[in-house]
């Protein structure tokens, strides 16, 4: 049973050099070509937003840009879909509370 296999081993990945991003100030390692959501999952982080009404934690759900559950604040800009946005060196992802901004209606 190939139990200790990882996805990277399975596809024989030889990635370009890793880099760092931060999540709520804490450094995490990213691989080039991964989405922000993938980087967060790889670090064991499943939630990076709280909901507007209940303040409940949320992260990626549909994985393909449809559900908007994965909204994150990236480099100060709220409402970015983490499953679509590729990670770039030095990106600062912060937990998005509610709308992610004071006013409704623009981003």
């Amino acid at each position: 049973m190939a139990r200790d296999r990882s996805p990277a081993e399975l596809v024989g990945a030889v990635p370009d050099a890793t880099f760092e991003i931060t999540f709520d100030g804490r450094p995490i390692v990213a691989l080039p070509g991964q989405s922000l959501a993938a980087v967060l999952w790889a670090a064991g982080i499943l939630a990076w937003r709280t909901t507007r009404v209940g303040g409940r934690p949320r992260g990626a759900f549909c994985g393909i840009g449809h559900c908007f559950d994965c909204l994150a604040t990236v480099n100060g800009e709220p409402n970015r879909r983490a499953c679509l946005v590729p990670a770039r060196p030095g990106d600062a992802v912060t937990t998005q509370e509610g709308h992610g901004h004071a006013e409704l209606g623009d981003r």
Binding site: S6, P7, A8, V11, A13, L31, Q34, S35, A37, A38, V39, W41, A42, L46, A47, P57, R58, G59, A60, F61, C62, G63, I64, C67, C83
Partner: peptide, 18 residues
């Protein structure tokens, strides 16, 4: 958090190796 779409898990695995 941790409940994800089945196709979504597949998509994250196929594209992000996670």
């Amino acid at each position: 958090p941790g409940v994800v779409g089945a196709g979504g898990a597949q998509a994250m695995l196929k594209s992000g190796l996670v």
